[in-house]
């Protein structure tokens, strides 16, 4: 039996195992769910959705407002035109953000995935230490991580800039990738690895042809999460940035502090639309891989 057929069987087998024996409970639950929740919770839900979307709607409307300010002064595309023609600094910040997001997510994905494999399937002396290290950064307040990195970089004499931001982002991204890949690996039985080894695969072949493909949904969502978190981060970046290394959140921050241009409204709308357009197909793709 080749690696591929082995894998195919696993893929077919795993979801089956997960579903067995649940159908009865599920249908009962569905029945219970069909009796809709109370009108109070329905009101709470929709009021919350209005609350969630209200700021976005305000930005959308303001982005088409001819003049700055709270009162409507006429429809215009001027801020969109300015966004794409006169905002060089903004696009440089966007470029920095994209570069750091990609590099830090890649680093975190490689190191996080390898560690998840090691911790899930092997025993070694510092296993508990790795687990703890991959948990703590997620729960410490950002400000503490930011300050400690700033002090650390000053201590070792690293010039603050894109490199220090990259290191900081890879650091806070690592635990998320580790967690997501671990969760995926937990669904598989170690016998898959044993089978591959018994059939003559080397350690490296097992890694590349069995472990990596079957944990791909975990790896892919870990990578995407890392990219998102990196693009989002403001607080940690704020502390470890240096002259000239402006990321998009830092740019927005200085725009808020030192006079807001309505170009930011247009930028927000473009970013929300862009994110939705980017994430929707990716989500479907992830579901597709997971279903396979």
């Amino acid at each position: 039996m080749s690696d591929e057929t082995l894998l195919a069987e696993r893929r077919n087998g795993a979801p089956l195992r997960a579903k067995t024996g649940r159908s009865g409970l599920e249908s009962r639950q569905r029945h219970a769910k069909a009796r809709a929740a109370s009108s109070f919770s329905g009101f709470a839900y929709w009021a919350t959705i209005v609350f969630f979307f209200m700021p976005l709607v305000v930005l959308l409307v303001a982005s088409f407002d001819k003049e700055k300010g709270g009162e409507w002064s006429g429809f215009s595309f001027i801020w969109y035109v300015k966004l794409f023609t006169e905002s060089g600094e903004l696009w440089r910040a966007f470029g920095n953000s994209a570069l750091i997001a990609f590099a830090s997510a890649l680093t975190a994905t490689v190191l996080g995935t390898l560690a998840a494999i090691g911790v899930t399937w092997y025993k070694f002396p510092f296993r508990g230490y790795v687990r703890t290290l991959n948990f703590l950064p997620m729960i410490l307040p950002e400000i503490v991580i930011g300050i400690s990195l700033l002090v650390f970089f000053a201590g070792v004499g690293l010039k603050l800039g894109l490199v220090s931001i990259y290191i900081a982002h890879a650091t806070f991204n690592l635990p998320f990738v580790f967690l997501m890949v671990s969760a995926r690996l937990d669904e598989f039985d170690y016998s898959v690895i044993e089978a591959a080894r018994d059939l003559g695969a080397s350690e490296f072949q097992t890694l590349m042809k069995v472990i990596v493909p079957m944990s791909m949904p975990g790896i892919a969502s870990g990578f995407l999460t890392a990219v998102t978190l990196s693009l989002e981060d403001f607080v940690i970046t704020f502390f470890v940035t240096g002259p000239g290394a402006t990321t998009l959140p830092l740019f927005v921050y200085s725009a808020i502090r030192f006079g807001v241009s309505p170009v930011i409204n247009a930028l927000s709308v473009v970013m929300v639309a862009g994110t939705v357009a980017l994430i929707l197909p990716l989500r479907n793709y992830l579901k597709y891989i997971a279903a396979k």
Binding site: L111, L114, T120, L133
Partner: peptide, 27 residues
């Protein structure tokens, strides 16, 4: 699931452990 004792495990986790020791624990 139980972890199997194998020599390779530490190698997988080492880069991650070093990175977080340097850039998270040390700071």
């Amino acid at each position: 699931m139980t972890a199997r004792p194998t020599k390779g495990g530490a190698l997988y986790a080492l880069p991650n452990a070093l990175w977080l020791t340097f850039f998270f624990l040390a700071p």
